[in-house]
C-alpha cells in the first residue's frame, strides 16, 4: 500500500531542489559585484572657510577612498570642472551657484559654509578713493565669479555699470600682483589674497560687508553623487563641523594650512574672522523648512544679477536646498 504523505513529501523536496537550482542558475548569470561608485571628488579652493575640510583630510577623517580632494585655486575653474563632471562637490558663493544652476547642472545645496564679512573686496591703487573713480579705469576681476558680482554690486551702488569700466579678466591668484604686473587700477579679490594685497599697500575700496547676506558660500553636490555617495557626503559635512575651530587643528597641519593660504597665523585668524562660519544649528534655519532662509539670499542675489545682466533667466525650483546631510 502506498503512503501518500511520504510521496508528497518527496515531491516537495524535489520541487524545492529544482527551485534552489533555478535560483542558483539565476544568481550565477545575474551576479554582479555590488556597485561601488568611485569616491566623489571635492573641489576646494584656497579659502579660509573651507580649510576645515583640508584639516579633516589631513587628520584622516576623509580618506581618498571616501572623498577625493582636488585643490583648485579659483572658483571659476572649480565651476568649469563641475560643469565638465571632473568634480562632484564644489564650494561656491551664491552668485556662482546661480551661474552654475543657469548652466543646467543638477545639484543640491547641502551645506552653508560661511558668510563673507569683508573677505571679498575691491582693492585699488591709492589714486582711487571711491567707486565712482573707477569710471574708465582698468579693473582686474575673475569673470563669472563672486568677484564679478561684487564689482557689479559696487558699480550699481555708484550708479555705474560694467560698461563704464575696462574689465581685465584675471583669475583670483593673479589678483595678488595684478596691480603691479598687469597695470590695472583696481582688482577684485578675496581672502587670502585680499590680506596679502592689503599687506602690500592695497586700498580696500569696497567689500562684502556692504552687501550683507549676498556673499554666503555654500557647498553644492551633484544630484547623482548624493544618491550614490550620501554617506560619504554626510561624513564630509560632519568633518567640516568637527574642525571648524582652528584651535583644534594640530600644529603641523596648521602650518600646512598657513602655507596654503600664504599667511601668518595672525593674518589667517584675521582673514578667518571675515568669513563667519555657520554652525550646525544655523544650517537648520538656512536650509530646512518649506521656505529656507537661504532661498531669500538666493533671491536677493538673483535679483541683483538679473538687474545687472549677469543672468538672463529666473531662479527656478530646480535649485534644491537639501538639508538631509546636516542633521546631527
Amino acid at each position: 500500500m502506498t503512503n501518500p504523505p511520504r510521496l508528497s513529501r518527496r515531491g516537495l523536496y524535489f520541487a524545492l531542489f529544482v527551485g534552489l537550482d533555478a535560483v542558483l542558475w539565476l544568481a550565477a548569470f545575474t551576479w554582479t559585484p555590488p556597485k561601488s561608485p568611485p569616491a566623489p571628488i571635492l573641489s576646494v579652493s584656497v579659502w579660509p572657510g573651507t580649510e576645515s575640510l583640508i584639516v579633516a583630510r589631513e587628520m584622516g577623517l576623509l580618506p581618498r577612498e571616501k572623498i577625493n580632494f582636488v585643490e583648485m585655486s579659483w572658483s571659476s575653474s572649480s565651476m568649469r570642472a563641475f560643469g565638465n563632471r571632473a568634480v562632484d562637490i564644489v564650494g561656491l558663493s551664491l552668485s556662482e551657484t546661480i551661474l552654475l544652476h543657469e548652466l543646467g547642472n543638477p545639484f543640491h545645496v547641502i551645506l552653508v559654509i560661511d558668510n563673507s564679512n569683508g573677505a571679498d573686496a575691491i582693492i585699488s591703487k591709492e589714486n582711487v578713493s571711491n567707486i565712482s573713480d573707477l569710471r574708465g579705469k582698468k579693473i582686474g576681476v575673475e569673470v563669472r565669479s563672486s568677484g564679478h558680482y561684487l564689482l557689479s554690486r559696487a558699480l550699481e551702488e555708484a550708479g555705474l555699470t560694467l560698461k563704464d569700466i575696462e574689465l581685465i579678466p584675471i583669475n583670483l591668484p593673479e589678483s595678488e600682483n595684478a596691480i603691479a604686473e598687469l597695470g590695472v587700477d583696481a582688482v577684485v579679490t578675496a581672502e587670502p589674497w585680499l590680506t596679502r594685497i592689503v599687506k602690500k599697500g592695497g586700498h580696500v575700496l569696497y567689500d562684502s560687508t556692504q552687501t550683507p547676506g549676498e556673499f554666503i558660500r555654500v557647498l553644492v553636490a551633484r544630484e547623482s553623487t548624493i544618491d550614490e555617495s550620501g554617506s560619504a557626503l554626510a561624513e564630509l559635512v560632519t568633518a567640516h563641523f568637527k574642525y571648524l575651530d582652528p584651535g583644534l587643528w594640530p600644529k603641523e597641519i596648521f602650518e600646512g594650512i598657513l602655507r596654503r593660504e600664504g599667511l601668518s597665523a595672525a593674518e589667517f585668524n584675521d582673514s578667518l574672522s571675515r568669513a563667519t562660519p555657520f554652525s550646525r544649528s544655523d544650517q537648520k534655519a538656512l536650509l530646512s523648512g518649506a521656505a529656507p532662509e537661504l532661498m531669500e539670499n538666493f533671491g536677493t542675489v538673483m535679483r541683483h544679477m538679473k538687474s545687472m545682466g549677469l543672468v538672463s533667466g529666473a531662479l527656478t525650483e530646480d535649485l534644491i536646498i537639501n538639508d538631509s546631510l546636516i542633521s546631527p
Binding site: F17, V18, D21, L24, W31
Partner: peptide, 27 residues
C-alpha cells in the same frame, strides 16, 4: 573585489550545475 565576485558567480554556477547533475542522476 573583482576576483572575489567572479569566484562567487562561478561558485553559484558550479553549485547549480552540481545540483542539476545530482537531480538528473537521481531523478
Amino acid at each position: 573585489n573583482e576576483t572575489i565576485h567572479e569566484a562567487i558567480a562561478q561558485t553559484f554556477a558550479l553549485s547549480a550545475g552540481s545540483l542539476m547533475l545530482w537531480l538528473m542522476l537521481t531523478q
